[in-house]
Design a protein around this nucleic acid. Structure first.
Length: 480
RNA sequence: CGGGGCGUAGCGCAGUUGGUAGCGCGCGUGGUUUGGGACCAUGAGGCCGUGGGUUCAAGUCCCGCCGCCCCGACCA
């Protein structure tokens, strides 16, 4: 049997139409479904379980870095939202408004939060009085609404789930450290749990968060060669503190404004996992977050009772340590199940049939590389652990190689255009630092500056756009 | 908001010059099967997106509306 024959028929091959592959994969694997509400999806149990796993791993990291969870209102009075000028201007076009309560028109419109800086700052101004009240380290798990013109499941939906951290500090230095620390938490999380290699760096003035002093981000490369912003962390400076009047009395008796940060990742990460690891059979989920890490598929044969019995015992052995499922459905053939769980991206398949029962073994098949091995049932517990770890590593390495192979350095505009057309991916190029050049390049090529990377951003030539002396070497890409 | 596409059974689709709706998958029931998406038998399931028009007759032709998807412009 060739690879071609194995391809799941219901999923459009990614070479043919990547976008359709993405949609087909999501729908067929039951991660999500479209609803009657424009731009809004349902997170079906399998997709929600994936998000819950991401949540708990992230939440653990937030707690470890001293943050506490809280929950702020969904509604933001218009007057609050309007306080920070740059912020409103950034979000105004995509805010959903509540104008009525029942039949009665509200005295003041309420925005459905597109992000919570304003409502949170309004509370911080109440809570912060003294240097002793700082820092405030709060995180919120929430849904937000942005009235997007065009939507795609997970990547851009009218309503999405995310977390937003909001902190307040007494010094600029501390705020900057927090901003960078949380970016690094994100980097570590996506690399070690989601197996997504990323480029970390700073956003340009043009690309930064509305109202921020500086924005940092991690950028990942998808299999179609487009970049995806996987997480952002903002140093808000004192912009919000000034308009929301968040002041504290310092040790020296002076009234001072706090320095703030905010940072977030969203369910978009699910999209990143799909588009980084998936193939024409469907999903490939990293073991650390896969809702099902291993599936046991019994092959009943003539002595089905014995096989089923042994399969149940195997599940008992594994279930304390791994997210394992036993598929006892008698209506589907084993072959059907093989394809189904491969499509669903389950990292490891455990087959047990009459032959295995006789030999006291099981057959293990890896989703990441298709490798098939037999192992004694006595060693199953340890072997599963080792394999899951190995799959996780291998998935990261594969994605890493892909990203490296699709990262190109160019030194003039023609080369830049050629690479974008032929090879796509990340393109490193010298840039003079002007917004004019950044926009001109975007106009001509649809590529944006994804970030000014922390590593390897020393210029080694002239700006590919205007030809003047470059100040930075930055990462360009066409992005989602 | 521009360009394109699509609305017919749960899903995917077919439906000829207009003549009163069909296929595949899925679903129910009974049985045989089960090591890479099994098979036989037998069932259930439709206001053909919506409003108007043409016609003896509209899924089909004409006009409007609504919705959804894709690709762009703008954004996690």
């Amino acid at each position: 049997m060739t690879d071609e024959d194995q391809v799941v028929k219901e999923i459009t091959p990614m070479e043919k139409d990547f976008s359709q592959w993405y949609i087909d994969t999501i729908l067929k694997t039951e991660l999500a479904d479209y609803t009657t509400v424009r731009g809004c999806i349902v997170f079906r149990p399998y997709g929600y379980a994936l998000w819950e796993n991401m949540q708990s791993l992230l939440d653990k990291r937030f707690k470890e870095t001293g943050h506490k969870n809280a929950y702020f209102p969904l509604f933001i009075p218009e007057s609050l939202l309007n306080k920070e000028v740059e912020h409103v201007e950034g979000f105004a076009p995509e805010v959903a408004w509540v104008t009525h309560g029942g039949d009665e028109e509200l005295a003041e419109r309420l925005a459905v939060r597109p992000t919570s800086e304003t409502i949170i700052c309004s509370m911080y101004s109440k809570w912060v009085k003294s240097w002793r009240d700082l820092p405030i380290l709060i995180n919120q798990w929430a849904n937000v609404v942005r009235w997007e013109k065009s939507t795609r499941p997970f990547l851009r939906t009218s309503e999405f789930l995310w977390q937003e951290g909001h902190t307040a500090h007494s010094t600029e230095k501390e705020a900057e450290q927090e901003t960078l620390r949380m970016l690094d938490v994100y980097r570590d999380f996506v690399e070690s749990e989601l197996a997504l290699p990323v480029i970390a760096g700073r956003k340009t003035e043009n690309e930064k968060f509305a109202g921020a002093l500086r924005t940092y981000c991690i950028e990942a490369l998808m299999k179609d060669g487009k970049a995806l912003q996987a997480g952002t962390s903002h140093n808000l400076g004192q912009h919000f503190a000034e308009v929301f009047d968040i002041q504290y009395l310092d040790k020296d008796g002076q009234l001072k404004y706090v320095w703030q940060t905010s940072w977030g990742v969203s369910t978009r990460l699910i999209g990143a996992v799909i588009m980084t690891h998936g193939d024409n059979k469907g999903l490939k989920l990293p073991p650390r977050v896969a809702p099902i890490q291993a599936v046991i598929i019994p092959i009943p044969g003539k002595e089905s009772a014995v096989v089923y019995d042994r399969a149940k015992k195997l599940k008992e052995t594994l279930k304390g340590a791994y997210r394992v499922e036993l598929d006892m459905n008698d209506e589907k053939t084993p072959g059907w199940k093989f394809s189904e769980y491969e499509m669903k991206g389950v990292p490891l398949r455990i087959e047990i049939g009459p032959r295995d029962v006789k030999k006291n073994q099981v057959v293990l098949v890896r989703r990441d590389n298709g490798e098939k091995t037999s192992v004694s049932q006595d060693e199953l517990y340890e072997t599963v652990g080792k394999l899951l770890e190995d799959i996780q590593k291998n998935m990261y390495n594969q994605a890493k190689s892909f990203t490296e192979e699709n990262t190109h350095t160019v030194h003039n505009f023609d080369e830049f255009k050629d690479v974008l057309e032929d090879k796509k991916g990340f393109v490193k190029a010298n840039w003079c630092g002007s917004t004019e050049c950044e926009l001109a390049i975007k106009e001509k090529t649809m590529a944006t500056i994804r970030c000014i990377p922390f590593e390897d951003s020393e210029p080694d030539g002239n700006c590919i756009c205007c030809g003047k002396k470059a100040t930075k070497k930055v990462v360009f890409a066409r992005a989602y």
